[in-house]
Design a protein around this nucleic acid. Structure first.
Length: 375
DNA sequence: GTATGCTTTCGGC
DNA sequence: TTACGGCCGAAAGCATAC
């Protein structure tokens, strides 16, 4: 059933400063104090970056992605500041509980990353007003049973719901109704649209376009000419608040990657052979646990100047054994290192993609038998 | 020319 | 003074096929 206007009602639910909030829940004495959750690389004391910071830490300029040492310098002299290492298995546990709770409210559910999801509530809410009440109930329920706050956007589609959840945070609730959506998005910058990144923003800027209303003024034909049919049409629709993407159950992950920081920079592939083998074993273990076979292998290196390079190879068939993985990875790493002998490698990674589920898969002979109606 | 698929880079969290 | 993770999916850039 649809609402009387025929429009959908979609919510985007985004947990506030998720990792840091999880830590506050586990240890309430952290609340109100500047808290920084860190990824320590182990290379030297305090080398690594900030994963998440709570709002008290953000007031001091601590943000995701900055080096830990900068965060510490910005919080120097704040005696109650706390720095904790990431604890992914704990956050995953909290995430699973949170997502299950949300699903109990939802029709269709789509998880995005560890701390965000979309739900389609068209069937449950007869109006945006009802949906807003439902969103409040979801927030209350999450607060009461898990002690977490989140920000929710309610809108006629995923794109607008995401813009809405971002509009007021933390602990926000923003509704964009179909009647007011044009006004709501008109003055927002084009990069608020998920899918319009810096590259596209820059090109649009060169066309004199900064706001979404200016974007809506561009001719569809011109957009298609400039960006191609797919992207051009997407932009034309997005500028009008149109997005038909359904809320869809998220499938299996499309890639499995492991990346590490080396104890010391390396300049030859030989120096990294132990790490490379361990990375191969590690990604393969994850793939096997998920009953996935891979077809594409990539090796990623990050140089001392933080430039990133990668090389990948697609095999003839899917595989889930170590030998082809390791030999392919070794070959790719050799090729990467041969390209420039002055490179200093800081970080090394291996990625599997083009994944295929092997669970319950028939053997080839069974498959042939099925084709012939024999099994 | 356009669509499709593969490789590499980008950038969000 | 500088300081710098570990993932993921999507975009961009190419090559090839029709």
């Amino acid at each position: 059933m649809r609402t009387s206007t025929g429009s959908r009602i979609v919510m985007h639910i985004d947990f506030d400063y998720f990792y840091a909030q999880c830590e506050e829940v586990r240890n309430p004495s952290l609340r109100g104090r500047p808290l920084t959750v860190c990824v320590f690389s182990g290379r030297t004391e305090d080398s690594g970056v900030v994963s998440t910071a709570n709002y008290a830490a953000r007031e001091h300029g601590v943000r995701s992605g900055i080096p830990i040492r900068i965060a510490k310098s910005r919080l120097a002299g704040i005696s109650d500041a706390a720095f904790l290492p990431v604890d992914m298995s704990y956050y995953s546990e909290v995430s699973e509980k949170s997502m299950s709770l949300i699903q109990s409210f939802a029709g269709r559910f789509e998880q995005v990353g560890i701390d965000e999801c979309f739900i389609d509530v068209s069937e449950l809410a007869s109006s945006f007003e009802v949906a807003k009440t439902l969103a409040s109930q979801i927030k209350d329920s999450i607060k009461k049973s898990l002690g977490l706050t989140c920000s929710i956007g309610v809108a006629p589609n995923k794109m607008l719901a995401k813009i809405a959840s971002d509009f007021q945070k933390p602990d926000g609730l923003t509704v964009i109704e179909p009647e007011s959506l044009q006004n709501f998005i008109a003055n927002l910058s084009v990069d608020k649209i998920s899918g319009i990144g810096p590259k596209t923003s820059k090109r649009l800027g060169e066309l004199g376009v900064k706001s979404i209303s200016e974007l809506a003024g561009l001719d569809q034909f011109k957009l298609v000419e400039e960006f191609g049919r797919k992207t051009g049409t997407f932009i034309h629709n997005a500028a009008r608040g149109i997005d038909e993407e359904p809320v869809a159950e998220s499938g299996e992950s499309k890639q499995i990657a492991r990346i590490i920081t080396l104890k010391n920079d390396a300049s030859t592939s030989v120096e990294m052979s132990n790490e490379l083998r361990e990375l191969c074993q590690s990604v393969l273990e994850i793939a096997k646990a998920r009953k996935m076979a891979f077809k594409t292998v990539s090796v990623i290196i990050i140089l001392s100047n933080l430039d990133q390079k990668s090389k990948s190879k697609t095999l003839k068939t899917h595989s889930n054994s170590l030998e082809p993985l390791h030999s392919t990875a070794q070959m790719l790493l050799n090729e990467l290192m041969e390209s420039d002998d002055s490179m200093r490698v800081r970080r090394l990674g291996v990625r599997l993609s083009d994944l295929q589920n092997t669970a319950g898969q028939n053997t080839i002979s069974q498959f042939m038998g099925d084709l012939n109606g024999l099994s």
